[in-house]
Design a protein around this nucleic acid. Structure first.
Lengths: 247, 247
DNA sequence: CGTCCCTTTGAGGTGTTTCAACTAGAGTGG
DNA sequence: CCACTCTAGTTGAAACACCTCAAAGGGACG
């Protein structure tokens, strides 16, 4: 439920991402030390959190909202290289410059730590380092899945892949299963989807229309999606229907 | 069985990847423990090291040679998602199934650890965990760079990008600088390059011919490449010529 | 009611793929 | 030493998926 989770968080105990973020494995002691150096920051939709190339003075976790990691070429072509959801970690301990733009695509709340103190704490707290390793390995896996999408899938498959990723993630956040029809709101504009998938926004629009016409998805308005048959969508995505489904 | 030149390594002290692999930060004590559980394996060019979906009983480092990580769709489309060079780490502690095919593209020697003992050792050895985190973060950065290539670059830019990556890596391995002409042998077939870049092998061939005709590269035979002007190649790759160059 | 932004749809152009034929070099055996 | 074969790579012509440019629709907001 998204009301005003904002700056009122002070205790980690009832933090919504307590069990999934970098701090997931921490015990009460460690949490206390983290609590001492943490602070919250809010960003409005559209605001840039970090500029590529800038000094990065903090690291932190997404508490609520969605942010994107993007790379931009000199001529303006842009590619999204990361989609940050609640509990995801931003920033790289041990590095100063930011390699990517981080932009809030919805209103965003982050739990931040100044980089230096966090690095020192991490060096003394294996639980944090271990959890960060786990999360980084997961991200690497996701990036590699994404590379298959970018390199080898057709526009229609790309859209279907993105929809199935969002649908599954949405289900896992809200603890619903993947049986029965799935309903969610797209958190991205057509342009952001295009940047995610290496397409133009027109192609995205066309393929969404096509999937709708073929009954693979239903649309209410521009953003509200219903997926009557998840298996069908996975087929359209070109995914092994059995393999990744039941995970 | 082919020749086994490498199996003579027994001491980590004179290991060629000692200072770059997972064991880089280890002290003498820790190295000793690693030494107890390590063993070498050789693979011939073309051999599959690990099949996607199989149980993974070991993790390890590439000592010499080159391996690739690939994903394959049901209809046979394949995308390379990792290029493993000496010192790179294979396998994921804490997971049993292999998510990708690992294939030796040249003769390959790996320094392996049975997974269980390695995981236990890692839990007690922050130096290893820390180094693995560093390496994973580096790989994630590389994957994201690669995503920009796959999603937004033209075929010509893709080829130029791949060549510049190989050239720079070659220079860093052999401790040469990036000034003056660079000379190296392509470690990949046209097909492997295509799988790397999300192209067909015909397109790869055509673009290489085009770059050769335009004087961006020189070719001797199919594999021996000379790059007269690295800056020119970087321009062709669509990269910020100043930024990544001097690194 | 007009403005602005996001989105949809159309028509034409283009870069990459597909299918196919051909070349180069390396290894094998008569 | 010369076919013969095999694999890797090159090149051409036609097909097509996606992009580009352009115009118009739809909802939110002042």
């Amino acid at each position: 439920m998204s009301t005003q989770p904002q700056l009122c968080h002070t205790s980690c105990d009832d933090c919504p991402i307590r069990h999934r973020a970098v701090c997931a494995h921490c015990d009460a002691d460690e949490l206390e030390k983290l609590e001492e150096i943490k602070y919250y920051r809010s960003f409005e939709a559209g605001q840039t959190v970090i500029w590529s190339g800038d000094q990065m003075s903090f690291v932190g976790s997404v508490v609520s909202g969605i942010a994107t990691l993007t790379q931009t070429m000199e001529d303006g072509r842009t590619q999204m290289v990361g989609l940050l959801l609640p509990s995801d970690f931003v920033g790289r301990p041990g590095r100063d410059g930011a390699p990517y733009d981080v932009v809030a695509t919805t209103d965003l709340v982050m739990c931040c730590f100044r980089k230096k103190p966090f690095e020192e704490l991490m060096a003394r707290t294996p639980h944090i380092a271990h959890r960060l390793l786990e999360m980084t390995l997961d991200e690497l896996d996701a990036a590699r899945e994404w590379m298959l999408v970018l390199g080898r899938k057709t526009a229609r498959e790309k859209i279907a892949s993105l929809l199935s990723i969002i649908a599954r993630r949405d289900a896992s956040l809200s603890m619903r299963g993947v049986s029965g029809p799935m309903v969610f709101d797209l958190p991205l504009t057509r342009e952001a989807m295009a940047d995610y998938l290496g397409l133009t926004l027109e192609t995205v629009s066309r393929q969404i229309s096509a999937l709708k016409k073929d009954g693979v998805i239903h649309l209410e308005g521009k953003r509200h999606v219903t997926i009557p048959d998840m298996g069908r969508l996975m087929e359209e995505a070109g995914d092994d229907t059995d393999g990744g489904f039941l995970v």
